[in-house]
Nucleic acid binder design. Sequence first.
DNA 1: ACCTGAACACCGTTCAAGT
DNA 2: ACCTGAACACCGTTCAAGT
Lengths: 226, 226
Amino acid sequence: MTTTRQAGTARRPRGRHGLDAERIAATAADFLDRHGLEALTMRRLAEELGVGTMTLYGYFRDKDELLDAVVERHARRLRIPAPEGPWRERLRVLLHGLHHDLARHPSAVHLRASRPIMSPAAMRVGEAGMRALRDAGFDAAEAASAWRALFNLTFAFAVFTPSTLPAEARRGARAALAALPADEYPTLAETAQAMVDALGGAEQFENGLELLLDGLQARLDARGAG
Amino acid sequence: MTTTRQAGTARRPRGRHGLDAERIAATAADFLDRHGLEALTMRRLAEELGVGTMTLYGYFRDKDELLDAVVERHARRLRIPAPEGPWRERLRVLLHGLHHDLARHPSAVHLRASRPIMSPAAMRVGEAGMRALRDAGFDAAEAASAWRALFNLTFAFAVFTPSTLPAEARRGARAALAALPADEYPTLAETAQAMVDALGGAEQFENGLELLLDGLQARLDARGAG
DNA sequence: ACCTGAACACCGTTCAAGT
DNA sequence: ACCTGAACACCGTTCAAGT
């Protein structure tokens, strides 16, 4: 293609089959939710759309650009709640919403682990989070650092501590803990049930987030006292 | 070194070329550190070892099992510091060590994002962390939940907030922030420099961890007061 | 007991051609 | 302007054979 476009941006013709970069990205996103990252190939996606494989390359330079579009689409669809109430409540609502969304699209989270995303759409959640932190009284550097921690924690729970843990994973964890020699792992032997319980569930994220918010509150309190 | 192995564990013959599951895993780990996850193929790894591709299948059932062995090797090599000082200092040292190790092997972190690891070697860090939390006064459920948060935060910083951020990434982030319309993103416009600064650096993890530890301390304080 | 090349069923992508 | 099959350079892995 000789006509150059903004890097990474997909062209948007409307094709013979009613095809369209957005429709391709939507189908890919749906496919990822249903079958996971490893299952998504250009050939299978084309088949899903009822077109030839190479048709996709009329809309995206390569697979990477298509995956970028899927991630960008998720960012664009994330609803940012209107800022209401005190800073802590605003962060709570904002990050619970983000976590809920990430938890429903694990493949997209894995994609984002290897491709930082800095589009305007992706920045909306950052704008809202930073606003709440600034209003709480943190300066720019403190707020930016706190936001990194809040954001990272939310992603990590989406990746490592799924809201709905498969019963089989829970069973496996129980077995693995039971197999540990109790003399070398006395604490885990004693807390095995609690460890298994903490392996998944939405309340785990909730609890982690509250800890972080408590830490932020403590900073504000210390400042007021000092 | 354990003698009994559970299902899915590699056989350990010593081959003609001085080959050995451990040596293959070590070479794979090194290859990952140098070239990244996408570059590692069975063919290239075999070539690196100076053997035929199919030789690897004498030591591992498939590529997945080989990758499991790489992750397991990293877990085994992690040094757990001896418990010294108050609970907070113990968690600090333990998790800084973990973070430092993860940050040096980003490919292994990405691997762990898709394969939960519950081997005895991997549990050593959990045992140490849970011991510190129990000693601090948390009950089993509180400690397990706090450990999830601490562990997740540490992994997330290793994935999303690299200790040494490439200058190019920083430049890209600066440009992306500068391109945002200031009327829609007033807070990010005002804090752009701080946002860029917070994108990487070991002090970011440090700060996030301290926030979480502050949150835990606040819980203990509240209990003492109540 | 250990190692291996050939072959198979896949990939992503280039190219030249079809409408 | 849009779409596509054939072909190429890769994959992981099965199989049958080599030492």
